[in-house]
Design a binder for these strands. Sequence first.
RNA 1: GGCGCAUUGGUGUAGUUGGUUAACACGCAGCCCUCUCAAGGCUGAGACCACGGGUUCGAGUCCCGUAUGCGCUACCA
Length: 480
Amino acid sequence: MSEIRVRFAPSPTGYLHVGGARTALFNWLFAKKTGGTFVLRIEDTDVERSSDEMVEGILIGMKWLGLDWDEGPIHQSNRLDIYRAKAEELINSGHAYRCFCSAEELKAKRETAAAEKRDFKYDRTCLNLSDDEAQSRLTAGQPYLVRFRVPDRQSTSFNDIVFGKIDIQNETIEDFALLRPNGHPTYHLSVVVDDIDMRITHVVRGADHISNTPKQVLLYEAFGSALPEFAHVPLILGPDKSRLSKRHGATSVMAYKDMGFVPEAFRNFLALLGWSPDPKTYGTREIFNTEELIQAFNLNGISHNNAVFNMDKAVWFNWEYIKSMPLSELIPLVRAELEKANLWKPEYENSNWFAQTVEMLRARTRMLPDFVSQGRPYFSDEFEFDPAAVEKNLKKDPALKELLPELAKRLDAVQDFNLETTEQALRAFAEERGVKAGLLINAARTALTGSAVSPGIFEVIVAIGKERTTRRLASAPLRM
RNA sequence: GGCGCAUUGGUGUAGUUGGUUAACACGCAGCCCUCUCAAGGCUGAGACCACGGGUUCGAGUCCCGUAUGCGCUACCA
């Protein structure tokens, strides 16, 4: 058994989108699982639509997801001579021919056919050209295209690891283009030339390529090469079940980074979109760290159905990760968010207090930026007061105007300022004044955080510290 | 239009060779807990397994048809 080699071959005509990312992920997982090699190949044969910027974007997206490659990136645009030579080889062996029909001519034929409700397949005008005619056009310098000559045989089939046997009648396949007049290959030529050349053993790609595969199978045959294994991965759809696109919201993986996804969480979510682990050994488990995901992955678990991208579920994964990932891994992510918001202070570096505060906050934050919005009262003295919270917790009871400054004094008097001592002080004070502890607690919550919602109040008090707590409590009446 | 693929609760999936009340997760509703909001614990609603025919003692699981969705049908990948 030879070494397993897979590839991810994006076309740099856009940023790395979630569908592409998942295809890359499956290839990466399969390579890791089998100890194989993961090749990254940039399919930039369409010069008009490709750009270096997009290539860079794709690489950044993959790196964010932690998908590293063993070989490449190999740019097809650097291999043009190889494709030309291969096209020539096919012409010489009778598997392909030059076509001098212009794009305009063909378009016209297609339109006529459509108007007459016939389907159009290239009519082989140029296959039927006499040798002399073809030769004279060639020497006259007339631009041409190289077309594959589809064999007359009945049908072409291949076995797909996820879809099973797929068989297609050859008469439904037209003599497709291999080389454009500008000497650039089309997709069909470049993929198979490269997949053969790079000794790819498993082609794992989007299901949108199923219909293209028979053409490529024909090319493998023409080159006399053995077929790789094929595994077509179902597509990712938007909530309305149409192909995921901009109007469904973000499609670029980097947009998910910006929303505040933890890369491992997003990757875990993506992995389960169209794939599931063997229930025999993994039951109904859904959370898998990197190692576990690699262990659990196999091509057989890929689903046949297109999957709807469910944002709620993605957020749930994110939250699971934020809640339970090692604090040491979380902190740098939080730091990045705080830096973006200008809330980061040098003394937080290696700070115990900072770690504890993140720990306190993480239980109820789903997205990374929540550390900024919810964490502001802890990391800064400048935070907003929610008017509704002020109304509900501070203004409602006039007695608070006097109680809060007094509570500040009581807390200020607490020697060993911790969860137990602060709670004791507050409850004792409430009892002494004959008010419910809840009244003071909720009022303190809003006075300290500006919000009606927060972690447990004593955790909040300790996190904010004695000095800031007493100050905020004492100044609370200004808002009433 | 032609060709291909698919079709299990709102969503993602499980359901291995056909065999008792179709499972899990997200989401949703309610209860408990409680200083708020979450979390957590408990409970519940929600699928006649797209529809129609077969095959079989018995089908979500096999076969055929229909519908629907998606893909391909380019000198895009």
